[in-house]
Design a binder for these strands. Structure first.
Length: 574
RNA sequence: GCGCCCGUAGCUCAGCUGGAUAGAGCGCGGGACUUCUAAUCCUGAGGCCGCUGGUUCGAGUCCAGCCGGGCGCGCCA
C-alpha cells in the first residue's frame, strides 16, 4: 500500500516532468530536496510542497513562477480541490473530502497494518541492544536501553527493514571471573560454610540459588580445591544461569532477541579480524601519547599493538592487546562487528549506555575500516534513568547490592507502563521515572492518556452493541469537516513511521500517539456540549455507523503505534 | 587540554532531519459534568529558542567562536 503522501510526491514528480517536457523547466533538475508535508497551519490546506523554492535557484527562475506552473498542473487532478501559491513559494493543496474518506477506508482495511512501509526495502539491519554483563539480574540501568532498542527494532521492521535483534554476551573478561569467585563463596555457603563477602566480589542474593545449584551438582568436590580447578567450570555454569535470569527479565518486558552472541565464542575470529586490518596496514606497534589533564600522573609510555583508529575519525589510535598479551575488550568487539559484516548486514545499530560514549568513535572507525566504508554503524546513546517515588529520589547502591531490579519495577507498575515511559523522551537525554506518576490516571501521564483514548473507542463500540443498534455499512460522506480533520491526523501515521525509522528515534511514536489521542479526546468532548455530536446516536444508525468507523480507524492507528512500542492497547480502564 | 551530548515558556519537554505567525503538558487565571461521552475538554496570560558572527530566498534546526551544564579520555567492560 502506498501512503497518501507518497501518492502526492509522485503527482508532483509527474507534474514537474511534464513541465520539463513542455520546456517550462530546464531538464536534469535534482528533485531530492522536494518534500510533501502537511502544513503546520491547517488553514493553509491539506498538503504543502516546497518544490518551487527548492528548484528556483537551479532552474534560474522565480519560485512563484514555478509554483504557479505547478499549481496549474496539480489543480487538474480530480482529487485536488484547490492548489494555491502562498508565502515565498509554497504550493498548498486542498484535497476533496472524498480523498480523506478513502484514506479512512484504507485504515479500516489495513487495520493495525496501516502505516507499514516498504522504505527499508528488505535491507538487512542488525540492532544490538542490552548486552548487559552476565553478572546479575537486569536493573533499571539496563531497562531503558532494552526498551529503546527493542522498539527501534520493531519500528525498523515495520518500516520494511529485515531486522535482527541481537545481544552480545560479555562473558570473557575479568568480571565473569569475579562472578565465578562470588558463586564459589555461595557454593561453600550452601554446603554449610559461614562466608563473608569481601570487597570486590558480587554481594547480591541472586547468587544464593546459584551456589545451591553448584552444591547439588558438584557436592563438596571444590570446597577446598585451588581456584585453577574450578574457575572455568564455575564461570561457565554461573554465566549460563545468569543468562537465564537475564532472558527471564527480558521476557518480562516482552523482549525476545534473535541472536545471543557470546564473546567467549569468538576464539580465532579475533585473530582473523585483526589479520584483515593488518592486511590493510592498519595495525602497528607503537606508543601512545599521555592524555592531557588531570588523573594521569601514573602514565608510563609503553609499546602496544595499536589500531589506526585516528585514520577513521577517532581521536587516538586504540590498543588491541593488554600487556599480558591477551586481547583487549575492544579487540573482541572489533571481531564481533567483523562477524556482523560477514553475516551480510549493511546497516548496524548499537545501543550504548551514556558511560560508553567515549567508545563510539573507535567502534565506528573499526567498522569503517573493516567494511571499506560500505557499512554504517549508528550508535544510539541511551542516557540514565533517575528513579523517584512521589518526587523523592530512590536511593540505589550497587555496591551493597541493593539496586532496583527491572523485575521489581515491572512487577510494580507493569510492562506496558515501563515500556511506554521509556519511550517518552529522546534516548540521549536523561529521563525521570516516578513510580507514583507513571501510574497516575491524569492528563500529564502520557501512558494513561493514550490508553484512555483507546479504551474510550472500545467503550463506544461496546455501547452501540449493547444498545442493540443495527449498523449499516458506514457512509463516510456523513462525516463533517472536523471529523475528517481527525482522519487527516491519523493519516500522518505512515509519515511518522518513516521519519522515526530514518532518524532511528522511536520516541517520536509516543509523541505522535499523544497528539492523536488529544485530537480524539477533543472530538469526543464535543458531545458534552451538544448531544447530537456524540459518536453514538441511538436513533440514527447511519450517522453512528460513520462516526464509529472514524473512531475505529483512530483506534487502529493507536493500536498500530502501541504495537511498535511493544505496548498492549487497553480495552478498558479501571 | 581534547572529544561527545545538551542549553527552547516559571517547571518537564516536543519541534516532522532548513520552511510560513516557535508548540504541548504541568503550574497560574477563567469556563463546561444527571458521565464508561468530565480519569476529559474549552479558553487566557506567559518566549532576545544561552550569546555573537556566518551560510541561505528562508535558521530553534547547518557552520565557526565564545558562555554555561553533563559524560568520557592508554591494557576495566
Amino acid at each position: 500500500m502506498t501512503s497518501l503522501y507518497h501518492r502526492y510526491a509522485l503527482h508532483i514528480a509527474d507534474a514537474l516532468a511534464a513541465l520539463v517536457a513542455a520546456g517550462d523547466l530546464p531538464p536534469g533538475l535534482d528533485t531530492s530536496a522536494v518534500t510533501v508535508e502537511p502544513p503546520r497551519d491547517p488553514t493553509h490546506g491539506d498538503l504543502s510542497t516546497n518544490a518551487a523554492m527548492v528548484l528556483a535557484k537551479p532552474a534560474g527562475m522565480k519560485p512563484r513562477d514555478i509554483a504557479m506552473a505547478l499549481a496549474q498542473k496539480l489543480a487538474r487532478l480530480p482529487e485536488v480541490e484547490t492548489a494555491e501559491v502562498a508565502g515565498p513559494g509554497f504550493l498548498n493543496l486542498r484535497l476533496r473530502a472524498g480523498e480523506w474518506q478513502d484514506e479512512l477506508r484504507a485504515i479500516l482495511t489495513a487495520k493495525t497494518e496501516y502505516g507499514r512501509s516498504t522504505m527499508g526495502a528488505g535491507r538487512p539491519v542488525n540492532v544490538e541492544y542490552v548486552s548487559a554483563n552476565p553478572t546479575g539480574p537486569m536493573h533499571m540501568g539496563h531497562c531503558r536501553g532494552a526498551v529503546v532498542g527493542d522498539a527501534l527494532a520493531s519500528l525498523m521492521a515495520f518500516a520494511g527493514f529485515a531486522v535482527t535483534r541481537e545481544y552480545y554476551i560479555n562473558d570473557a573478561g575479568g568480571q565473569v571471573d569475579t562472578l565465578a569467585r562470588s558463586a564459589h563463596l555461595r557454593y561453600r555457603e550452601a554446603l554449610g560454610a559461614t562466608i563473608e563477602i569481601p570487597e570486590g566480589l558480587y554481594p547480591g542474593d541472586y547468587l544464593v540459588p546459584v551456589g545451591q545449584a553448584l552444591a547439588a551438582e558438584f557436592g563438596d568436590t571444590y570446597v577446598a580445591a585451588p581456584e585453577t580447578e574450578w574457575l572455568v567450570l564455575f564461570r561457565t555454569r554461573t554465566v549460563a544461569l545468569m543468562m537465564e535470569l537475564i532472558r527471564a527479565d527480558l521476557a518480562l518486558l516482552g523482549i525476545r532477541q534473535d541472536v545471543f552472541f557470546a564473546e567467549s565464542s569468538l576464539g580465532d575470529a579475533v585473530q582473523a579480524a585483526l589479520d584483515d586490518l593488518a592486511a590493510k596496514e592498519l595495525i602497528y606497534e607503537g606508543v601512545l601519547e599521555a592524555p592531557k589533564g588531570e588523573g594521569h600522573d601514573d602514565w608510563e609510555p609503553r609499546p602496544q599493538t595499536l589500531f589506526r583508529a585516528s585514520d577513521f575519525g577517532d581521536d587516538s589510535d586504540r590498543a588491541l592487546k593488554k600487556s599480558d598479551g591477551s586481547w583487549t575488550y575492544f579487540a573482541g568487539d572489533v571481531a564481533y562487528h567483523y562477524n556482523k559484516l560477514r553475516r551480510g548486514f549493511v546497516d548496524l545499530v548499537d545501543l550504548f549506555g551514556a558511560d560508553h560514549g567515549g567508545y563510539v568513535k573507535r567502534m565506528q572507525a573499526a567498522v569503517k575500516a573493516l567494511s571499506g566504508g560500505s557499512v554504517n554503524l549508528d550508535v544510539k546513546i541511551v542516557q540514565m534513568v533517575r528513579l523517584f517515588r512521589s518526587g523523592e529520589p530512590v536511593k540505589m547502591s550497587k555496591r551493597s547490592g541493593s539496586f532496583v531490579t527491572l523485575a521489581d519495577v515491572v512487577r510494580e507498575v507493569g510492562k506496558d507502563v515501563v515500556r511506554f515511559i521509556m519511550l517518552t523522551k529522546k534516548s540521549d537525554s536523561q529521563l525521570d521515572f516516578d513510580f507514583a506518576k507513571v501510574v497516575e490516571q491524569s492528563r500529564d501521564n502520557p501512558v494513561f492518556y493514550v490508553q484512555y483514548a483507546h479504551a474510550r473507542i472500545r467503550s463506544v463500540e461496546r455501547r452501540a452493541a449493547t444498545a442493540g443498534m443495527v449498523l449499516p455499512e458506514p457512509d463516510l460522506t456523513l462525516l463533517d469537516a472536523e471529523e475528517l480533520g481527525l482522519v487527516r491526523f491519523a493519516a500522518q501515521w505512515p509519515r511518522i513511521v518513516e521519519a522515526a525509522a530514518a532518524t532511528r528515534e522511536p520516541h517520536r511514536i509516543a509523541f505522535y500517539l499523544g497528539d492523536l489521542a488529544a485530537a480524539f479526546h477533543s472530538l469526543w468532548n464535543r458531545g458534552n456540549d451538544d448531544a447530537s455530536r456524540r459518536l453514538v446516536i441511538e436513533d440514527n444508525a447511519a450517522l453512528t455507523a460513520a462516526r464509529l468507523a472514524l473512531a475505529r480507524g483512530v483506534g487502529h492507528v493507536i493500536a498500530s503505534g502501541l504495537a511498535v512500542m511493544g505496548v498492549e492497547p487497553a480495552e478498558e480502564l479501571h
